[in-house]
């Protein structure tokens, strides 16, 4: 039996939609009847990853322009989760973003978003495509 869910969402480049996108990810994870791991933890992780990826697109790629759009494609099967976040901005160099400093004396307010995504997903890529960029994240489920 085919058991893959695919969703293609476009929302304005605004943080008010973070909650909506995060909850969609949570609900999709809860539909994974065959997933043998902790489904609630997976639902939370998808909420976090979608939120972080969308904030990244809004602020850093689309330069907080509220008239732009963020497109998110989510595909979940029994074997893998794939999330693609498209932006139409200038983009940034993901390899130039270091892990945050963990020394309590040298804490930075910012710079944890990509670290969190990398920690929760198996692979993270950001690359240029025609008219913008794509952040692609994958996680194996089986």
């Amino acid at each position: 039996m085919k058991n893959t869910i695919k969703l293609d969402i476009k929302v304005p480049n605004q943080t008010r939609y973070l909650c909506l996108i995060g909850k969609i990810g949570e609900d999709m994870a809860r539909e994974l009847d065959h997933f043998k791991g902790d489904r609630e933890a997976l639902a939370h992780h998808l909420n976090v990853v979608l939120t972080e990826a969308m904030v990244n697109a809004i602020r850093h790629a689309n330069a907080a322009d509220p008239d732009k759009e963020v497109e998110i494609r989510i595909s979940i099967s029994d074997k893998e989760i794939s999330i693609k976040v498209y932006d139409s901005g200038q983009g940034f160099d993901i390899t130039a973003i270091p892990d945050p400093c963990f020394d309590p004396a040298k804490l930075d307010d910012k710079g944890r978003g990509i670290f969190i995504i990398r920690s929760l997903m198996d692979s993270v890529e950001y690359r240029k495509i025609k008219g913008g960029n794509i952040l692609e994240m994958k996680k194996a489920l089986a």
């Binding site: 909420n47 939120t51 972080e52 307010d109 944890r112 670290f115």
Partner: peptide
């Protein structure tokens, strides 16, 4: 639910 921005504000 908290994200990196929420954590960042607490660090600030």
């Amino acid at each position: 639910f908290i994200d990196s921005s929420g954590l960042g504000v607490l660090v600030s």
